[in-house]
Design a protein around this nucleic acid. Structure first.
Lengths: 153, 153
DNA sequence: CTGCCTGCAAACTCTTTGCACGAAT
DNA sequence: ATTCGTGCAAAGAGTTTGCAGGCAG
């Protein structure tokens, strides 16, 4: 989905939920979609402030749930003490993440079986799956050999 | 592995790593193995204090890494702001978790393919997997119908 | 105008850490 | 005797929230 369609979807979502279209929310939306990879709340704040300097940390944290509930942004918890986010995720729950434990880089991988697997195993417990997450922690080949990861930022 | 073998493994692990066998560490070990399901650091503290009232929160947090590194306890991060632990996990990384989003109950499920899947997909990125986690968030059938989960504690 | 939205700063939660005392080896 | 381990309390980090003022509808 291109950014214009996403922006429209965002405005529509706000309208449908009786939420107001504010400059701050728009700036946060634009900032999120400028970032092509995974980002943190803090990085989003920096980007959003570059667009609208009045954006505060609180508003970023209050806007992120709106973005995730509208499926425009996916929240990714890799077991660290802060969360990552990804704008306009292409494949819903059909993806998994590999996290490099040295450089923290996140690789998105296709996991087409995932939805099916979660559903079939959950039904044995009388449960209906809401979301699935497959996460793999790994080391780069280079890190393994040299102790340093080439992806380190 | 029965508890006696585990206790012996714990003492051996301490010895091999130049760590001392203290009453507090033993109390925390016993407390963890008294709990047959998943527990939090706070629950472990309560149990450990019932055995040795001198155990402090700090020591619990300092002992948990020892228990996880010795594979006597598994750490489970379900994306909440605190971690769960499970003593004497039977199937290493060959298990996944289903978490009920209402009552937070954690169901352990077998996932025998998991190790293989992580390895095969990671190798495409030149990565070596360190750990895998498959987590499914789900709702109880009862919760779905009545809005209340029968497992609610 | 009305009331949702905002920035600010303080509060919160879980976890970690500095310090001086205490206990294991 | 040494040194590591401990309890206490404060610090830390990311996130949330109360409040008074501001802007969308």
């Amino acid at each position: 989905m291109n950014i214009d369609a996403c922006r429209e979807k965002f405005r529509a979502f706000l309208g449908e939920h009786g939420l107001r279209v504010t400059n701050q929310r728009l700036a946060i939306f634009e900032a999120a979609f400028q970032i092509k990879e995974h980002f943190t709340a803090e990085e989003l704040l920096d980007r959003a402030r570059a667009i609208d300097s009045s954006v505060s940390r609180a508003t970023v944290y209050r806007t992120l749930p709106i973005l995730t509930e509208s499926s425009l942004v996916r929240e990714i918890d890799v077991g660290k003490d802060f969360k990552f986010y990804l704008a306009n995720p292409e494949k819903g729950n059909e993806q998994a993440q590999i996290v490099c434990i040295d450089c923290d880089k996140i690789f998105e991988i296709d996991a087409p079986f995932l939805e099916w697997y979660g559903s079939s195993v959950s039904s044995k417990f009388g449960l209906r799956p809401v979301s699935q997450r497959l996460q793999i922690s790994a080391q780069c080949a280079e890190y393994r050999n040299t102790g340093v990861c080439k992806n380190r930022s």
